[in-house]
Design a binder for these strands. Sequence first.
RNA 1: GGUCCGCUAGCUCAGCUGGAUAGAGCAACUGCCUUCUAAGCAGUAGGUCUUAGGUUCGAAUCCUAAGCGGAUCACCA
Length: 596
Amino acid sequence: MNIQENIIQGIQLAFQNIYNYDLPLDQISLAPTRKEFQGTYTFVVFPFLKVSQTTPEATANQIGEYLKGNLPVVADFNVVKGFLNLVLNERVWLDLFQQLYSNPNLGQLPANGQKVMVEYSSPNTNKPLHLGHLRNNFLGYSVAEILKANGYEVIKANLVNDRGIHICKSMVAYQHFGNGETPETSGLKGDHLAGKYYVLFDKEYKKQIDELKAAGKSEEEAKKAAPFILEAQEMLRKWEANDEAVVSLWKKMNAWVYAGFDATYRKMGVNFDKFYYESDTYLLGKDIVEEGLAKGVFFKKENGSVWVDLTDEGLDEKLVRRADGTSVYITQDLGTADLKYKDFQIDKSVYVVGNEQDYHFDVLFKIMRKLGRSYGDGLYHLSYGMVDLPTGKMKSREGTVVDADDLMQEMIETAEQHTKELGKIEGFTEEQAKELYEILGLGALKYFLLKVDPKKRMLFNPQESIEFQGYTGPFVQYSHARIAAILRKAEQIGVNYQSPDYDSVSELAESESALILILNEFERKIKMAADEYSPAIIAQYLFDLAKEYNRFYAEVPIFHEKDHAIQAFRLALSAQTAKTIKKGMSLLGINVPERM
RNA sequence: GGUCCGCUAGCUCAGCUGGAUAGAGCAACUGCCUUCUAAGCAGUAGGUCUUAGGUUCGAAUCCUAAGCGGAUCACCA
C-alpha cells in the first residue's frame, strides 16, 4: 500500500460518487505540492472540468471534501484556483516510516529474472586512460549497479581494443626508439609507457610528412608515403599473418598496458565480469553477412560488396563487407553482439559509448532487429556526451588531455589539503587518514561526473569544477559522517533506536515529515534511474536527501530531547537516512566515511 | 549540404508524462558555532527559459521555422 496510489484510488471514488463518472486510474496523477503552499500532494482539477460541469474552485472543493471525509490519510485540504492541496495525517508519516525502517532490503528490488550485459570502458591499448574514460567508466559501473538494484542479473563487460593500426603505431615507435625500455627501467606505468611511444610515433610521422612535402610531395601523398605509416601498415599485415616477432612484441607491450590499466581500474573502483578482446573478435560476423544475404536483409552490389539498405528506417545504405571480402568495423560488432548472447543468454545489452558513435549504434541495432534477434529490442546505446575543457575539446595528439591517473591523484591530494585545513583528522591513524582522502577525493570526482545527465556534454574545469561544498560528493559524505557520529554517541550512552515506540510520538516537526517523504522516494528514484539509465537521478536525489537531513539536524534536537520515544524516533530517522545515503552512494560507486 | 543532439541566473547544472510566483550549487552580500561535526543551516540579490510563430483553460516543456554551438554522414576503427 502506497500513499499516492491510495489517494489516487480515493480520487477515482470521488468522481464516481460526486459526478457518477468512471475516471481511469492512469488519468489521475498527483504532483508534489509547491513549498509555498500547505500540503504534500496536489491534484490539478483543470482537465476534469468537463466532467464536473462547474468551476475549478468548486470542483476542487467537492473532491477535497470527499477525500477528507472518506480517506483516513487525508487530514485536510486547501484550494488555490484549480489546485487541490492535500494535507496528510500525521499518523501516515509514522506508519510509512515504520514500514521503511523495517525493510531489510533497502534499495534492492526483487529479482526480475532478466539478464543484462553492460559493456563499458573499452579502452585502446595504445595509451593511458583520460578524463573521458573516467566519465565512461563511472557511468558504466554505476548503471550496472543501478540495474542490479532493480533486480537484474548484470554482467559487466569490457571489450578491449587491443589490435589495429593504432596499436601498431606504438609498436613501430618502440622498435625505433625503445632501446629495450620497460616499465621497470623507466619507472613508468605500462599504459603510460605505451602512450609515450604512441606520441613519439606521431611526432616522427609528422616530421617525415614535412620532409616529404619539402621534397615536393603533396600533403596527401606525403601522408601515404611516410616510412612510419608504411611500417605500421606492414606490421599490421604481419600481425594478421601471425608473425612471431610482431606477435611477441605485441604481447609484451599489451601486457604492460594491462598491468597499468589494472592499477587504474583498481583506483577507480570499477571492475568487470568478462573481458572481450578485439584480437579475438575482429574476425567475427562473417557468418552473419551470409545469414543476412540468405534472409534478404543484405544485398550484393555489382563489385561484390555487401550492403544493408536502411533507407526505409530513415538511414542510408551501409556497407557490411568490402568487395575484397574483408570485414569492416560494424561486421565484428554484429558478431560480437551474437557472441555476448551465446555466452550469457542476455535479455538486454547496454553499450556505454560516447555520442560520437550514435549513428554506428543506430545502424547496428537496426540490423540486429532486421535479422530477428531475440535480444534485438533489448539493445541500448547509453550515449554520453563528451567532456570538454575550458580550452575546448581534449586532443591526445595535442597533449591537452587530462590523464585519469593524474586527475585522481590530484583529487586525493586536494582532499587531503582541505581536510587538514579544517583540522578534521585528530585521532586518525596515518592509514585511516589516507583512506579518508581517497574516499573524499574520488567521491568528489565521481559525483561531479555523474551528477549531470549522461546524454549531455559537460564542462570540466580542473581549477574550479571540483568543489567540496554544496552540490558535491563530499557534501553527501559529510552528512553521512555526521549521522555516524550521532549513532556512535547513541550507542555510547546506550539509547536503543532499533524499535521506537511510534505510538508515543505525538507530533512531527515539518522537517521530520519532509524527511520521511523524501526517504520514501528512494525506491522510485532507483526505478527511474534504471528506466533512464541515469545515475544523475540518484546523485540529485542524494543531494536533496542530505540537504533535507541537514535542515532537520539544524532545527531539531536529538540528545537534548527529553522525551525518550521522540529521541529514539529521531535516531531511527537518522539511521535510516544514513542507510539510504550509503546505499545510494554505492549505486554511484562512491564510498562514505564514518568520520570526516 | 543531409541527419542527429544541445541552448534555462555571471558560471555549472535541475526542472518527471504540459500546471501555481521557473529551482539548486558556485561566485557576491547578511545572519547563526559555551548545546549532537559550520565540508553545515537560514536569508538577500540575480531570469524577455536563444528568437519568431503555432497548438490550449495553461508552454521552459508539445509542433513549425530561424539563429548559434557540437557530433556524424569512409570499401577508417
